[in-house]
Simulated assay, not measured.
Amino acid sequence: MDKINKLRDIWDSISKVVNEQIDLSQKELINRYMDVFHFGEYFYVIFNTRTTEMEYVSPNVENIFSYTPDDFYLQVVMNNIHPEDLPYYYHYEQSAVRFFSGLEGDLFFKYKFAYDYRLKTREGSYKRVQQQIVPIYYFPKGGVRTLGIFTDLTHLNITGVPKLSFIGMQGAPSYYNVHQNDEFMQSLNVFSKKEQEILGFVVQGLTSEAIAQKVERSIHTIRNHRKHILEKSGCENVQELLVKAVREGWV
Rank of each mutant, 00 (worst) to 15 (best):
M1C: 12
K3Q: 15
K3H: 14
K3S: 15
N5C: 06
L7K: 09
L7W: 07
L7A: 11
W11M: 12
D12V: 01
S15M: 04
N19C: 06
Q21L: 06
Q21K: 11
I22R: 09
E28H: 04
E28C: 03
L29H: 01
N31S: 13
M34Y: 05
V36R: 10
F37G: 00
F39H: 05
E41V: 05
Y42S: 08
F43Q: 00
Y44P: 00
V45I: 07
E53R: 11
V57D: 04
V61A: 01
F65Y: 11
F65P: 00
S66T: 01
S66Q: 08
Y67V: 07
T68P: 00
D70N: 10
D71K: 07
F72D: 01
L74E: 12
Q75C: 06
M78S: 13
I81H: 10
P83F: 10
P83T: 12
E84V: 09
E84R: 10
P87F: 14
P87N: 15
Y88I: 08
Y88K: 09
Y89A: 14
H91C: 10
Y92E: 09
E93L: 09
E93Q: 13
R98T: 15
F99Y: 13
S101D: 14
D106S: 14
F108G: 02
F109L: 05
K110W: 04
Y111I: 09
K112W: 02
F113E: 03
A114M: 10
D116F: 05
R118A: 11
L119W: 12
L119K: 05
T121H: 07
T121G: 10
K127H: 15
R128A: 08
V129R: 03
Q132V: 14
I133L: 10
I133Y: 08
V134T: 14
P135Y: 02
P135C: 11
I136R: 07
Y138K: 06
F139E: 11
P140G: 06
P140L: 09
K141G: 09
K141I: 04
R145E: 14
L147R: 07
G148E: 13
T154I: 04
L156S: 02
T159I: 08
G160L: 07
P162D: 08
S165T: 11
F166L: 04
G168H: 07
G168P: 04
G168M: 06
G171Q: 04
A172F: 00
S174W: 03
Y175V: 03
Q180F: 08
N181Q: 05
D182Q: 08
E183H: 06
F184V: 03
F184G: 03
Q186E: 11
L188E: 12
F191Y: 13
S192L: 09
S192D: 05
K193G: 02
K193S: 13
K193I: 10
E195C: 02
E195V: 07
Q196Y: 03
Q196V: 03
L199I: 05
V202N: 03
S208K: 01
S208M: 05
E209L: 13
E209I: 12
A212K: 02
K214G: 02
K214N: 11
S218F: 10
I219T: 14
H220W: 08
T221Y: 15
I222V: 15
K227P: 01
H228Q: 11
H228Y: 08
I229E: 02
I229H: 06
L230P: 02
K232Q: 11
K232I: 02
S233R: 04
E240G: 04
L242H: 10
L242A: 03
A245L: 01
A245I: 06
W250M: 13
